[in-house]
């Protein structure tokens, strides 16, 4: 039977491993709070998304879709398509998870983000639920608290700044995307294909904005993957 002391030590290791994430989340969550304010959500609405969803990119996207008046189903489906990558991350973490009751794994699974995944996946040895609890707790607390602070700071903005803040969401997406564009030609191809398709669907009025994003994303992600794998296969033969 495991000792309480061992579990406490795992928890502390998790907290320590999450300090970098907690610091990194502050500017992103402050920005989210500011954007939620500019999207005219109430403080309770903005905080609920951070408390229950805890997924940065999906929350930004929800704000942008809420602003342009997208329907509930399309927002939820967009979130699903965007966050289904976490399925892959949880699959990978599950490989190194300690044998523990399922409810413990199901509990820390709530905190699987791109960042906590990266830290947990790089950790040497197996994953204990106490480690994951520490890692997730410090990351989550930072995200939720900074969301609220960002929202309250947003209320204090003069109107001329608030008008310019319309760019913030897009600048955030550009800031997330550009580092990958510099490193990977495939990322450039994926982003530009989906962007062109989305422009075509939007300007031709073929699809509503939410569906247009989903369809553009899927066509780009599937066709480029098929072409890429066919090319690699051809090279091997």
């Amino acid at each position: 039977m495991e000792t309480t002391a061992a579990a406490q030590s795992e928890f502390k290791d998790g907290l320590a491993a999450g300090i970098g994430i907690a610091i990194g989340y502050v500017p992103a969550a402050l920005t989210y709070g500011l954007l939620a304010k500019s999207a005219e959500l109430t403080l309770a609405e903005a905080m609920s998304l951070s408390i229950f969803v805890f997924a940065g990119a999906a929350q930004y996207i929800a704000l942008s879709l809420i602003t342009i008046g997208t329907g509930i189903f399309e927002i939820v489906l967009t979130t699903f398509i965007l966050n289904i990558r976490h399925f892959l991350m949880s699959t990978a973490l599950n490989e190194k998870a300690d044998e523990e009751p399922l409810w413990k794994k199901a509990a820390y699974a709530f905190g699987v983000t791109d960042e906590t995944f990266s830290v947990a996946a790089m950790k040497s040895g197996t994953l204990h639920s106490s480690f994951m609890a520490g890692l997730v707790l410090i990351s989550y607390s930072s995200w939720v608290l900074a969301s609220g602070v960002g929202y309250l700071a947003g209320s204090a903005m003069p109107p001329v700044v608030q008008e310019s803040m319309g760019i913030a969401l897009y600048a955030m997406f550009i800031g997330l995307l550009v580092p990958s564009l510099k490193k990977s030609a495939k990322a450039v191809l994926l982003a530009s294909t989906a962007a062109v398709l989305n422009c075509i669907f939007t300007y031709s009025d073929t699809l509503s904005s939410g569906w247009s994003i989903i369809v553009s994303t899927l066509i780009a992600a599937i066709s480029i993957e098929a072409a890429d794998q066919a090319k690699r296969k051809g090279r091997r033969e």
């Binding site: 990119a57 996207i61 942008s64 342009i68 398509i81 965007l82 289904i84 990558r85 399925f87 892959l88 760019i167 897009y170 997406f173 550009i174 997330l176 995307l177 990958s180 495939k186 990322a187 994926l190 982003a191 530009s192 294909t193 989906a194 962007a195 062109v196 398709l197 989305n198 422009c199 939007t202 300007y203 247009s212 994003i213 553009s216 994303t217 899927l218 780009a220 992600a221 599937i222 480029i224 993957e225 098929a226 890429d228 794998q229």
Partner: peptide, 22 residues
């Protein structure tokens, strides 16, 4: 093949989110 598609999704989504909205 499906792992590859899932890894592609974030880049494609960001492209579609930036244009034409911005």
């Amino acid at each position: 093949f499906w792992q590859g598609i899932l890894q592609n999704v974030p880049y494609a989504t960001l492209g579609a989110l930036i244009f034409p909205g911005i």
